[in-house]
Amino acid sequence: MRTVLFGLTLTTLALALVATATGNPAAPAAIPGCAKGSLNLLNEGQLTLATDNPAFNPWWAGGSKTKDWELNDPSTGQGYESAVAYGIAKRLGFTKAQVTWKAVPFTRSFAPGKKPFDWYMAQVSAYPERRKAVTFSTSYYNVNQAVAGLKSNPISKVRSLAGLKKYRLGASVGTTSYNYIVKYIKPDQAPRVYDSVADVVTALKNKQIDGLVTDFPSMGYITNVQVPGSTVVGRLPNQGGVQEYFGLVFQKGNPLVRCINKAITQMRNDGTLKRLEVRWLGQKGAPILK
């Protein structure tokens, strides 16, 4: 645990340095038809946002462990998702103090009933099937899945999707990663499914699986800090012409999504998202497996 924390501190320091070097984004333009008072919010004049606890790097950063937040306090504005959240808030005219955060486990984010947040963000993939239960925003991050393995395992030499077939792969339950394995890699051995990414990481360390599949941005922390001697084998190509993306989760039918989408589109068009991506998720590329 100590080494993990130490590594985390290092990563955080590095991130903080990058953050100060890049400076502040340009002042945003207001969004027509989305005056602060007209928005459908849980608490008037307040944005009530939620994410999972612990909030993992690099999506959340700062390492500001608090009473309520095990790893990173989302209210620091550090980390990709936190930065995006405050970016949207700013465009809608909210100050930093008008944004409050709640810890909500992923499984409760889509539980039936009234949601205790305006939106939820924790790398939730916006699948068509899920749209029956919740409303998603437009993409704030286009994601690729990726495979990691130990350098000592022959999987690290694999350069094609078909080459992955003969290996034992593992993923976390209920993730795109798992679906990808089953649908597109179709391995010869049944994939292993774990409760959390932390358990998949343990299994990789223990050599109980040959390859770990999760979203590419999470790979940096896993291969650099968590599993010594591991490497990113490659990124997995999008399938069926569908780009997988992370969307903000809203109560089904919440009209708030319309204005949030405008803010996200604005951030995409003016290059803010790209800049945040480089700042928080920027990493050496890994080959895309064909």
């Binding site: 039936p112 099937e129 239960a133 339950v173 798992y178 679906n179 292993r192 499914v193 774990y194 109980q208």
Partner: peptide, 23 residues
């Protein structure tokens, strides 16, 4: 035992639920 990565009945249902957000 599903905790260790073996897919049994409960794990399979978890997978289905997560795919569709339907219980």
């Amino acid at each position: 035992v599903g905790l260790l990565g073996v897919v049994e009945a409960f794990r399979q249902s978890q997978i289905e639920v997560a795919a569709s957000f339907n219980y």
